[in-house]
Design a protein around this nucleic acid. Structure first.
Lengths: 221, 221
DNA sequence: GCCTAAGTACACAGGTCTGTGTAACCAAAA
DNA sequence: TTTTGGTTACACAGACCTGTGTACTTAGGC
């Protein structure tokens, strides 16, 4: 296979990274297209980016792109599917895992290339007609909710379903707020709220060092 | 001013409504354009709707539209400004007002023409470049947060700022979730979480019986 | 050395979009 | 009646978009 290399395909930092790594990342063409589509779709918006732009960014011809994806819609679908990475379980205690979610959220907010949830954004800009996009967005949201629920069940929380839903509300709320405000503190606010909800459900989330809260309720056993 | 009327400008239900009202709503042309732009932009997406479509929907020429708005961008800005209605205070007790927010949210979710927060959607699809859109979106979000904060201050809550932020997270979270899932129950889940947060801050939000629902609200005084 | 698979360059069809130019038209005010 | 201002119909420029057609080039396997 001839990979006609014609100039700087990778941005300078990426380039440097790959240069010092032993194997220069034997990326398949499809993966290169997807990687670039991901960056542009996510950062600028799906409708805002044409296939020409993607091809030009990689340095390939538009024809090549269409040889790998039959249509832009197919590329959009592949983009979203690639974004759908299932959250992995860790060996840490469940309560810690749950709270760590918000810490990781805060880290992502702080990065300058964060621009909200790709699934919510896609549904927002592609409209209600696009059933395929909506379907994968629903699946993603549900997978996140289920992840919380499973951890809550490990903790023996009574109504894990309801609490899991409330936690995803906090996650999505902080994402939406950060999207417009660019304020990573939204993740911390969500974490504090999550702690209150967890404590209210009888989960031990450590001492409440920073807020002694006057009329605080003791958790029901 | 000649309002060249050329066929059904209003949908049948609207038409009926206006027919039985004494003044047939002396809408200015600008307002008619804005009303239609609002409906189409919000329901289908800003980028998805061209000015031709808006003009055709009203039954006016594209030229007329451009005589009232110098560019599509100006129309978008006017659309968002028109959406920016400040939440009004009522005479109900603050805690009730806060919780009523989530009831009204649930009602809006149940309507089939709800499609998320227009400001968040606009930021999502117009990208980070569009400073004007982002600015008004930030202003809107902040106005909502301040509304919560003021009510919490009336209630004597210690850290009203932080709690207000947490409440808007629940609001925006439920909006995002409903956008992809079409599930009004998200508003109820947010309300339940809000109750827990409020109770944790020392606010009396009534008994924890799942649904006292009617008439069981005792005014605090 | 030849064949094949993959990529390239480039043109182009056909559509949509924003925005403008222009002459005619109509209603109501002067 | 004449003027004036908002409106219409319609054409069009120029950009951009998705997707295709075609002939050429190159690397690697046989």
């Amino acid at each position: 296979m001839y990979l006609g290399y014609k100039g700087p395909v990778l941005s300078s930092e990426q380039d440097a990274r790959y240069r010092m790594a032993p194997p220069p990342a034997p990326q398949t063409m499809k993966e290169r297209i997807l990687e670039t589509a991901d960056k542009l779709f996510y950062l600028q918006g799906i409708r805002a980016i044409g296939v020409d732009t993607i091809a030009a960014e990689i340095g390939i011809s538009k024809r090549t792109l269409y040889n790998h994806f039959p249509s832009k819609n197919a590329l959009i679908a592949a983009y979203l599917e690639r974004r759908f990475v299932h959250a992995r379980a860790s060996d840490k205690p469940p309560a810690e895992q749950i709270l760590a979610t918000f810490d990781s959220l805060e880290r992502r907010f702080a990065a300058k290339d964060f621009r909200g949830c790709p699934f919510v954004n896609a549904v927002a800009e592609l409209g209600p007609q696009d059933r395929a996009v909506k379907k994968i967005a629903i699946a993603f949201k549900e997978s996140r909710r289920v992840w919380f629920r499973d951890r809550l069940n490990e903790l023996g929380v009574a109504d894990a379903e309801a609490l899991a839903t409330q936690l995803v509300l906090l996650v999505d709320g902080s994402i939406a707020q950060d999207l417009v405000r660019d304020d990573p503190a939204m993740a911390r606010a969500a974490k504090e709220a999550a702690k209150v909800l967890l404590r209210n459900a009888g989960v031990d989330v450590g001492s409440d060092a920073k807020k002694p809260m006057k009329g605080s309720k003791r958790a029901p056993d």
